[in-house]
Nucleic acid binder design. Sequence first.
RNA 1: GUCCCCUUCGUCUAGAGGCCUAGGACACUGGGUUUUCAUCCCAGUAACAGGGGUUCGACUCCCCUAGGGGACGCCA
Length: 494
Amino acid sequence: MTVRTRVAPSPTGDPHVGTAYVALFNSVFARRHGGQFILRIEDTDRERSDVASESMIMDALRWTGIEWDEGPDRGGPCGPYRQSERVDIYRRHAQRLVDEDRAFCCFCTPDRLDALRRAQRQRGETSRYDGLCAGLDPAVAASRVEAGEPHVVRMRVPSDGACRFKDRLRGVIEIPWSQVDMQILLKSDGFPTYHLAVVVDDHMMGITHVLRGDDWITSTPKHELLYRHFGWDMPEHAHLPLLRNPDRSKLSKRKNPTSLHYFRDVGYLPEALLNYLGLMGWSMPDERELFSVDEMIAEFDLDRVSTGGPVFDLEKLNWLNGQYIRNLSPAEFADRVGQWALNRDRLERLVPMIQSRTERLIDLAPQVDYLLGERRALSADLFQHRTLTEEDCKRVLHHALAMMTTLRAWEGSVLMRECRALSEKMDIKLRDFLFPLFVAVSGRATALPLFDSMAFLGADLTRTRLRSAIVALGGISKKATKRLDKEFAALAQN
RNA sequence: GUCCCCUUCGUCUAGAGGCCUAGGACACUGGGUUUUCAUCCCAGUAACAGGGGUUCGACUCCCCUAGGGGACGCCA
């Protein structure tokens, strides 16, 4: 049996470093065993998936140097590799389960489900479908479907006992069926949910080993049950530890840079990033810490994967990146710098901002200092303003940050529109509203156009700067954060 | 709240019952090299969550407690 692994990102935003992490382990494991590594796009959420995200993910993964043998861009024997193009396969399988009475049609409205969940939560139970439609006469259900009534397909779940499955890293895990929801397999739009699609695809694509984040552990019983119902062998599962923020919550863009674009744009070398990710939850038998992906492949062993969630430590990544930078030959170093900052594309994005402000080319560098380098360290007195207090500045920064985490597209025009709207809701003049943002982003009260600057820096770097600006202003207490979150939510409503 | 997972220096980790006086790396501190700085070199501070077992012997095995995390969506 040849080993086949996959990574299955969903194209719903910036390419996440966690995707590269899981991709690295999957590809290394496959290569170690002479197998194949597959990229599959899980775009079954029609609301949130978009093609721009899909190509960003593929570009970012290519940038890291991770290569896949089969995928939407290069085809392969098990295609298509984009789930939105496999919908009829999922429908067929869902229908098969309905025919065999292992699944049923459910006509409950979202409102009813919502109320149900709330009540269960209040009673301290795990929220779970109550089975109202499970007892429907199949003929009656079929005629309601026939009549065009909106419905979903749900899987039946054993009423008692527990699901036992093997995790390659932890051994046998046992989860009571009472904790497992009658999962929706097919949504009312006819698209599958993750749980149906992942099982069908992993089986049809010959996946032998599933290496994924450990946040999937609790839904594995659903998958185990599906494999059983379909009569398929379940691939071996190994749940990798989740990357963490310094506060040990799972790594999130709210608290940390997570976009692969950030790592590329601030000048991490992809080989250093992969080396660092290889250190997260895994170690070389001889404890060496500097190694290439090829060296990792030569030594990789799932037995050396640890289970505690590692904190993503930028400090150590910086050191590691420095090691790689210094090991470059002068010519390679020059090439890397050229590819990074002085490439034509990046320069052209700068030109509209700087050309009109330049008399001699030597005037250039001081203007773009904060765009091509770290901005200066901030102190509270930089935020002195004739009308805004420090508290006002913090409020603006907090709300701007909150607004930015909800943005789908990171573009100057969008940022401008959103900032204007926010300033009006907060009843602060736009020019005053912008002041703390200028300082936070550039370290100066006056700088190149703000929204173009933010667009150039990218979402993660911009957010990182706003966060550190709040710290420079003395930070916001937990209590105050809660209050501000509430305030922002209220503003966002109207 | 319910269920599941996890727990070695601040952080990443080594450790598969005696090699442990618990090792390495980052960070930090001190010293050296260097026209400054950085690099580089040397040294130092710092951990087995707690309590019970099992054993001649427990960081390693078992149980309990505590702490942390995750899941509980017509998201993935």
